[in-house]
Design a protein around this nucleic acid. Structure first.
Ligand SMILES: [Zn+2]
Ligand SMILES: [Zn+2]
Ligand SMILES: [Zn+2]
Ligand SMILES: [Zn+2]
Lengths: 137, 137
DNA sequence: CATAATAGCTATAGATACTGGAGGAACACA
DNA sequence: TGTGTTCCTCCAGTATCTATAGCTATTATG
């Protein structure tokens, strides 16, 4: 039997976050002690570790809900789970592509000499004028 | 004189967002028509374009507030503005680095044959077990 | 001028995924 | 029994919008 604090230390998920996951239905409502405190078992720890790992990889709560639901049916085909992961990979690649464009512009803006006054500042002039940018973003 | 709709079309910023920026103090409270509708001038359009451009580049509202404040003093040195931009560049590079790690793991997870059942699914097994990952994240 | 269509107003709530605090109760240990 | 740590619920706040409801103003047409 684990307290919520034990579970938190075991998984690295903060206590309010565990309660939040319960509220969101990702974790089942825990059993309670006589004094109304949550008590967990090892399968709860495994489930929460799964959730944390997926969150660390950027899956949304909704995606995780689906992945957990799928995990409950070991004999079904896993195409749905694979598709969710592929979508997540695409979303990550999209974000990287967008951030690369931003990096390029910010690098350009900041790579000039800046021993200057506000009225001549290349950073501020670039922000005021998107035409100075080399890409869409 | 521009209505809020004109300003929205001219800058690509949605109407509720313009009102939100006013509430946040990024845009000055607009003058009003007899019937209490907001009326803008071209300097408002320039200011809002600046805000939009900076938001598109990922600057926070707080950073933009500082940049706008700096812009109001043309004769001061611009080191503060440059520093804000450099910090933003670093933040973007940080995000890219983290996303690359996620991309690597997600690519590994999804690059197997998946003609399979849930109980053998490499995606689900990987999510259940961080030891299968090749990096921290 | 009357009416209709379009556009604007405020106030409030929702999305996303948590995080923190107040005020009080329970638990573990000596 | 006392003490210190942990836990409880409820509520508010973070960041940046976005959307709805219910109402009013402006503009265009006949
Ligand atoms: Zn500068
Ligand atoms: Zn630009
Ligand atoms: Zn699979
Ligand atoms: Zn991992």
């Amino acid at each position: 039997m684990l307290t919520i604090g034990d579970l938190s230390r075991a998984t690295g998920v903060k206590i309010p976050t565990i309660r939040y996951y319960e509220q969101m239905g990702l974790m089942a409502a825990a059993e309670r002690s006589g004094g109304n405190q949550r008590r967990y078992e090892s399968h709860d720890r495994e489930r929460l570790s799964f959730i944390k790992h997926a969150r660390d990889l950027g899956f949304t709560i909704e995606a995780i809900r689906e992945l957990l639901e799928l995990s409950a049916h070991p004999d079904r085909p896993c195409v749905d789970a694979d598709e969710i992961a592929v979508r997540q990979l695409q979303s990550v690649r999209n974000k990287i592509a967008k951030l690369r464009l931003l990096e390029k512009e910010l690098d350009r803006m900041t790579s000039r000499n800046h021993d200057d006054q506000v009225k001549h500042c290349y950073v501020l002039r670039s922000l005021a004028n998107h035409d100075m940018c080399v890409s869409e973003h």
